[in-house]
Design a protein around this nucleic acid. Structure first.
Lengths: 142, 142
DNA sequence: GTGACTGCAAATAATTTGCATTACA
DNA sequence: TGTAATGCAAATTATTTGCAGTCAC
C-alpha cells in the first residue's frame, strides 16, 4: 500500500533522511489521486513547504521511484508523470480527461508474451502497459 | 507495410510535398530496424541529405506519425523515440541492448480490459503497450 | 508562379548539476 | 557533529518557433 507511514519507513530503512521537503512531496502525491507532472508535484508540495525547490522535487521523485513508492507514467505531451505505486507489479489506468489514476494488478499477458516470443525469437524481459480511458465521474458529466 | 514507395504515395495523397528532406528522413527510418531518437534520425538522414536541419526532422516526424507511417515509442531516458509502423494497430518489441525493433499485432487484451473496466468503472479507450527484451542476435552474443 | 517547405538562429521547456549553506540523525 | 540534503542559479538537453529565402508541383 502507498501510505505515508510505510513510505516514510521505507525511506528511513534505506540510507535516506526523512526531511521536511520529502514529506511534503510524499503528501502531495498521496493526496492527489491523479498522475502528476513534476511541475504539478512542485506546486502542490510547495503549499506545505514554502521554501521547496524544483530541483529537490526531481531528486525526491527519483528516490521514490527507487524505493518503489511511485511509478513513472507517460504523458500525452511526451513528458513524464508520476503516480503512486501500491502494488509490486501494477499498471496504471488514467482518465484522459481529469487524469484520475487507478492502479490495477490483473495483468496476465503471459499467453500473449509466449506467442510473441515464439514468433519473434526475442526474450521478453519487461513490459510497459498503460491504459487511458474515462473515469466514472467524467462519464457522468459527459 | 512500411515501404518507401507506399509512404511516399501516402505523403503525396495527403496535401504533403515529397521533398528531398522528407525522403531522407523516411529512408533513414526504413533502413534502420531499430527505434531511433530524433537526434539519431537526424544524424542518419544527414548522410543522404547534407543540408538537413534538425527542425525539419521534428516537423517531418510529426507528419509521418499523422499518416501512420511511424509510431512514437517511449525511451528509457524519458525522451521519445520513433519506430516504423507497418500495421494499423501494432505494438513494439524493443531489444534493450541494441534497440532492434519488431512490431507485433497479436495483442488481445480484450479479456483483461473487460475485467479492469468492471473492477474500476472506467471506460478504457486506448492502451499503450511496449515490450522490452533481448533480440536473437544479442542473446547469442551474451 | 506560388504556397508549402526549409535552414538557421533564437526562444521555450524540461531536467540536471555545482556549490555554499542547512538540518537530520 | 558530520554528512547527506537543500535552494538557488547556471548549465544542459530536447523541442518549437519566426522568418527570409527556396523548391516541388
Amino acid at each position: 500500500m502507498f501510505d505515508l507511514k510505510s513510505v516514510t519507513q521505507r525511506l528511513a530503512a534505506g540510507q535516506f533522511k526523512v526531511t521536511r521537503q520529502r514529506q511534503a512531496v510524499l503528501s502531495a502525491i498521496a493526496a492527489s489521486h491523479a498522475r502528476l507532472s513534476a511541475a504539478e508535484v512542485y506546486t502542490r508540495a510547495r503549499r506545505t513547504c514554502r521554501d521547496l525547490g524544483l530541483a529537490t522535487v526531481y531528486r525526491t521523485l527519483d528516490i521514490l521511484i527507487d524505493i518503489g513508492a511511485i511509478r513513472r507514467v507517460h504523458l500525452d505531451d511526451g513528458c513524464e508523470g508520476f503516480a503512486p505505486a501500491s502494488a509490486e507489479h501494477g499498471h496504471h489506468l488514467i482518465c484522459g480527461h481529469c487524469h484520475a489514476t487507478v492502479e490495477f494488478e490483473e495483468c496476465d499477458l503471459t499467453a500473449m508474451l509466449k506467442r510473441v516470443e515464439r514468433s519473434t525469437g526475442f526474450k521478453v524481459e519487461q513490459h510497459w502497459l498503460e491504459l487511458v480511458g474515462q473515469c466514472p465521474a467524467c462519464q457522468e458529466k459527459a
